[in-house]
Design a protein around this nucleic acid. Structure first.
Lengths: 186, 186, 186, 186
DNA sequence: AATGAATGAGAGTTCATTCAT
DNA sequence: AATGAATGAACTCTCATTCAT
């Protein structure tokens, strides 16, 4: 039931916003009553925590798999992360947007956990950049943290414009971004 | 008074969120009563409209000045836009974040106006890329729209991490980003 | 200015109701500001008092003229009162309805004055009935007070259905009512 | 609970008026909180709808029973309707006055329904008059619609003056009115 | 004679939450 | 496992009224 509640809440939270979605809205989707909600969840925040944790843990897990693949170069790994993020939009666009927008409404305890995971997600990319600098794969004078934040910006922004049903495939976008990151537009 | 209300609302809207900020919160900051708010504003939304329009019009104006400078190359202009955006964080960080997050709460009429301006902001960049492709300044096989969205992502994300009081100057960030965009990290 | 305010308030009070009409609504019709209203009127109630007094005094005056005409029989006088009331709808329909519906909102002092006038209006009719009984013009066993209330009911109700622009003239309605009152429908 | 709320609201709506009665007034009578009101009613209007529908449906039902009684003549039926209306004052005076005065505040959907019922109530009387004309029970040259409006006026006005606790019984008033309608005062 | 800024009290309504059943 | 009644606090918004200018 907790799963069902998460599932119906995600489109509601994305479309109307967390604050604007009432418990009533959620239980209406399931044909149950508000009491039922509180049987499964302590409060509304807990549901948001669940949703956000579920998302970021999934993303981190995917990223870890990519990073730990020893057959690929750093560059390959960065590419695969970008591709993974953009691909995830097909099934997790709403999920991702909630994550970005509604973090503010989380309890402190869970917020810290999430920030930790988020940091790891970022650091994994930064590490790839740093490694590349060390091995000579990348330029030697890069500021890896800012480069990483640039890459994250490009990726995260896709949640606001990329349409998986549109003409451009996730692969194409990933390729274009990776090209720009690798050799620029000049 | 409308100005004063905008001014105190911006930090509130950024920190607590638009929905979570009550009219009471706003008027308390000014030492006036709720009635006063409604003397100057038709409703809460109108205040948000004001805030958002004020922001995006400022940004567009700055961008127009940059773009219309005939002494600079396309590349220079892109650089100046990036620098302008990051510099704007010093005085407009909260303003910008409200703009990005709370657009959903705007009235339709004003929303359309804002979307229009936003589109122009984007198209101005895309035009620079297109021009660069035509003149040979940039690679000839670029997908300018996606490249532009990548650049916008990098810039917009800075509102969430860049600290103007920190060690790295806006100029440095702009340089790093511009380098990546120009020649990549390889 | 007090007159002008009364004039624009009457349609507003009739259509929206006294409570639902705001001072703002009233002053908007005149292109002045709320302050102006309070320059001429102590408060909203005073305006209603004015409107209602104006109406009932006019009605009473008309009635007095009819009653004091020594050429007419009692029956004639009753007829003329009915005709006068129904004729008054053309110019005072809204006025009359406000009078009937919004008396509740009047101050006590004025309310008493109005009730007094209203009573006189009623007693003038009742007197005609009583006179008729005494002179043998009417049946001798009539309960004049209840008969009077019946006649008043017929007349007052016309404010809710009679359309002066419709096909039936005020004269016709007065004739029909008077016929019924005189000789019934049998 | 909806019933209880209707019950306490009727005197409030009659004495203070619909607009002047607050939800707080209503719930105070029941010792519950405003939230409870909104658990049972969508809004204030819905309560008024309930009250008004309840009244007019009761009146129509009573009228239908009278009209459908095949043992009575048309004249008898008109008498019984008048008597029924005046008798209803004992238990429904306030109810009736709310109905007459506060129709303006009803939603359109319900308003139409109510107007329909009201029309039927009127047409049932008019039909009796028409029948009487046809059968020769009544004068042949009557304008039945205006006669009916006259009768309705007499009856409806009783809600504003008849005191069931006073000296005159409902039966007496009905008899006096019926006499006037039948044979007039001459 | 008229304005415009401000007030303050209260309105209707929403909603997360509780809890006995 | 689930309900349904109830709460209470907060919210947006309205408006008659005041008063210095």
């Amino acid at each position: 039931m907790r799963e069902k509640m998460m599932k119906v809440s995600i489109p509601l939270f994305d479309e109307k916003g967390y604050s604007e979605t009432s418990i009533q809205d959620i239980v209406d989707c399931l044909g149950v009553t508000k009491g039922t909600f509180y049987y499964y969840y302590k409060n509304k925040q807990e549901l948001l925590n669940d949703i956000n944790l579920n998302f970021i843990e999934y993303m981190l897990e995917q990223q870890r798999t990519i990073v730990s693949n020893e057959n690929n170069s750093g560059e390959d790994k960065i590419y695969h992360i970008i591709f993974m993020v953009i691909s995830s939009i097909r099934t997790r666009k709403q999920h991702a947007r909630i994550f970005i927008r509604e973090m503010r409404h989380m309890e402190n305890t869970n917020l810290n956990e999430i920030k930790q995971i988020r940091k790891e997600f970022k650091m994994n990319i930064q590490q790839l950049v740093d490694d590349g600098i060390k091995t000579g794969e990348f330029k030697h004078n890069l500021k890896s943290d800012i480069i990483t934040l640039g890459i994250l910006g490009m990726m995260n922004w896709t949640y606001y414009w990329y349409d998986p049903a549109g003409e451009v495939s996730a692969e194409e976008v990933a390729n274009i971004f990776m090209d720009m990151i690798r050799t620029g537009i000049k």
